[in-house]
Design a protein around this nucleic acid. Sequence first.
DNA 1: GGATAATGATACGGACCCGTAACGATCGGG
DNA 2: CCCGATCGTTACGGGTCCGTATCATTATCC
Lengths: 117, 117
Amino acid sequence: MPLEIRPSQALRLWRQVHLDLVRDGEADLSARQVAILLTVYLELPPHTVRGLATQLGVTKPVITRALDTMGKLGLVSRRRDEADRRNVVIQRTVAGALAVERLADLVVDRAREIGGS
Amino acid sequence: MPLEIRPSQALRLWRQVHLDLVRDGEADLSARQVAILLTVYLELPPHTVRGLATQLGVTKPVITRALDTMGKLGLVSRRRDEADRRNVVIQRTVAGALAVERLADLVVDRAREIGGS
DNA sequence: GGATAATGATACGGACCCGTAACGATCGGG
DNA sequence: CCCGATCGTTACGGGTCCGTATCATTATCC
């Protein structure tokens, strides 16, 4: 059950959602931060710094810094793994879940408005 | 002829495309830069700094700086409007058109892979 | 127990971006 | 003409991010 979408529709959808994100003053997340956020909220836990770095193909400091920023924004939180205290487990937050939900609704709504061609 | 998509599909699509963008090392454009790029390539010319600032709901320096960066990347170019030399017209480039096309294909391909539910 | 490995965080120099404010260039009306 | 309005750019101080290299902490293996 593939999702059918034409290139011109894809571009209009992409543009409109980004316009909404910019205009709503939503925290201007970079592509990396979006990838991290959605990975944490869509993939099965546990999530570690190392694991995210591997999945994104970036270095660990990139993840650490992104988590710093997103932590300040309340989108994720960190907890030491008591089983192996070297690890840090990235956890979801209520605010983060709401932000993800808003994004989903935004995409769905804008997709609905995208007419044919 | 609306585009039907469920929230969970929207999120998976959004995540997968952002993962691709990060992994491909494509210039890590901010949401604002994406909005500018797609506006220039989808909407009818001419495009001015002021016009883009109004559409995005941001200040003019934001546009100027984004154009500086995207100009270095070759995604857009600037030309003085000879009719009214106060204006600057933002123009498309071959590299920019290719980047937009790649993005469209990326979204289309990933959408096709998004199964039901 | 001591050496080795692995994890996440930090330091550093450099680049980019933000918003506000000021600026030079250009146009247009009186 | 000249003065005000409009255009895009630049200056400023502050913040974030980058990649590389290094760090402290913790686990593992002999």
